[in-house]
């Protein structure tokens, strides 16, 4: 990989890949390549350690056992934390969001330490949330759309702000959705989130590149967004 190639870290796809999560890496990679930049997806598996030199890090969704395993692994491999401390963007979805928080408790009642990159704590919720999720964003202009499937209720501390406010669905469980601290973002949106929300993808990429990126016109994405966002009125 040359110095000018953007390295997109896809963390532990063998255990955190439940919701088509490699799609987020693919979306980021293509959105850079189509604008003329070199980019490459770098999968990081459990039998290696996390390099601190990648430009961006992605964590996906996973089942209960897999989530605990991934959290243990990432806590004991300093690469991700030092990259985050250096300002490299980190994007976690579902189990990924919970791992990035301070701690989480599974449905089995056992509490596990997270990475502390987001100021949030997750407890099991009464009900599983399985539905389309729509949120009004805080950092962005356009609404967020995705699918959620989790049984976690996440409460944010003062060190994180919500990514958005829930319009339809459950999100964090208290009307907020997701969490942001500096360049670390967690969300319950999958679908995958960055395929459905190109503005969010480009926000992450602008942090990597250090400047805003030229808009990219993709009629397919506009069509899908208007279809999914129409569900807000259908309710």
């Amino acid at each position: 990989m040359s110095d000018s190639t953007v390295g997109i870290g896809l963390l532990l796809p063998e255990v955190l890949g439940t919701y088509g999560d490699s799609g987020n890496a693919q979306v980021l990679c293509k959105r850079l390549q189509w604008r003329g930049y070199d980019a490459e997806v770098v999968p990081v598996s459990l039998d290696s350690s996390v390099p601190s030199t990648l430009d961006l890090y992605l964590l996906g969704g996973g089942e209960d056992m897999a989530q605990v395993l991934a959290a243990d692994f990432l806590r004991n491999s300093p690469g991700l934390r030092s990259a985050a401390n250096a300002g490299r963007p980190v994007f976690g979805v579902c189990a990924g969001l919970q791992i990035l928080g301070n701690r989480f408790r599974g449905v089995d009642g056992v509490e596990h330490a997270g990475l502390g990159l987001l100021d949030l704590v997750t407890e099991p919720a009464q009900q599983r949330a399985v539905a389309e999720l729509i949120a009004e964003p805080n950092l962005l202009e356009t609404p967020l759309t995705g699918f959620e499937n989790h049984q976690g209720a996440s409460v944010l501390g003062p060190g994180s702000t919500p990514l958005g406010r829930v319009v339809r669905g459950t999100g964090n469980g208290d009307g907020t959705e997701g969490a942001v601290t500096d360049h670390v973002i967690g969300t319950y949106l999958h679908g995958p989130a960055l395929a459905r929300n190109p503005e969010l993808a480009d926000l992450l990429l602008s942090w990597v590149m250090g400047h805003a990126l030229k808009p990219l016109e993709l009629a397919e994405v506009d069509t899908l967004r208007s279809e999914r966002l129409a569900a807000r009125r259908a309710r």
Binding site: G17, Y19, G20, D21, S22, G23, Q26, V130, A131, E132, F147, N149, H190, G191, P192, A195
Partner: peptide, 9 residues
């Protein structure tokens, strides 16, 4: 299945 994320797998 209502969730189409698998399309990316």
């Amino acid at each position: 299945g209502r969730d189409l994320s698998w399309l990316w797998d």
